[in-house]
Design a protein around this nucleic acid. Sequence first.
DNA 1: GTCTATAAGTAGATAGAC
DNA 2: GTCTATCTACTTATAGAC
Lengths: 203, 203
Amino acid sequence: MEHKDTTEERILTAAQVIFTKKGLAGARMQEIADEAGINKALLHYYFRSKEKLFRKVFERAIHILLSQVGNVLDANQPFFEKIHDLIGLYIDMLVANPGLPLFVLSEINQNPEFLEKQFVKTLHSKLPRLVSQINDEIAKETIKPINPVQLFLNILSMIVFPFAARPLLERVFQSSFNTTFEDLMKDRKKEIYEFIINSIKNN
Amino acid sequence: MEHKDTTEERILTAAQVIFTKKGLAGARMQEIADEAGINKALLHYYFRSKEKLFRKVFERAIHILLSQVGNVLDANQPFFEKIHDLIGLYIDMLVANPGLPLFVLSEINQNPEFLEKQFVKTLHSKLPRLVSQINDEIAKETIKPINPVQLFLNILSMIVFPFAARPLLERVFQSSFNTTFEDLMKDRKKEIYEFIINSIKNN
DNA sequence: GTCTATAAGTAGATAGAC
DNA sequence: GTCTATCTACTTATAGAC
């Protein structure tokens, strides 16, 4: 699966590295060519324009961010297990792709037309199911009453934010607590899960 | 206080709008001039270069993000009150400046040298105090044992992330729940505080 | 202080040889 | 498919009139 060593693939990988670091506007085609170890003209041979190349990289990023998570949300699983697996899967994915959240959020902000219907549609099809599952648990009194959307926001925030703020947090944690970002993230799955359960679970 | 209507101020305000929307690399001096209603050459007359103008805007943003919060963290207050006030102050500030978090995080990521010592130093001087206050509460058994850094990350995440992800969340919430972002944020102070207290407080 | 005009450099894109 | 050389357009920055 992971990556036939064709020129096209090497360009895409290089483009992902540079676009993630510099953004669409800040990236230079020359930089991408250098990173891929090929000539600038080849980029245009394969992808015609900078924006078309960017769109391919961006679509990939969105796909990674959504694909596995959709399955967890769909799964027919007890509520607490689902939350547990969601946290585990998402953090694993972000550890493997730490630059994705900030990349996607920045570009959507700077260029709102990149927020494709696909993205919104995927979430739109998954979220209501989670919301009604939360409401079921509240009705069964297994968890305390809470606005399901706010609960979802809390969970998502605790998972994703540290990666979006990583460039900043790395330095602060290093200088203040002699802790590396990686160490924090190792414990974080368990930490987040327990923090949530402690908060919402009924005795 | 807020803003003598000098040309310099109008440029800074315009620059903040454009840089926040497009980033350093994506912003055009012409756009900033148009937004300020003046000529392009005047930008250079007042600020010499695009980067110097950017730095002024960026420093302002950092200042807004840190100034009030430092005071809360320093305050000699009971722990739960301090958490309560911290959430309230920070969300108020972000509602007034919703674009700041993503702006600052993106630019630090794309241009790590903009992360000035000042920023790291300020946090460095405030955080250990909060950490030891958390440890005190754990020792007194008013709250459950928890890694203070992780707790701090949880709180910060729940406050800041929704604003960083705002361009995305706005659409999703609108299309899935017929809720506006603003409505969610109105309740959010109370929601976050209760979520945290429920999680950490000992009975 | 504010403008118009222009200089100098850069980046995306293409032509054409191999 | 891959390269070198080049075109064209745009962007920052400056010169100089008012």
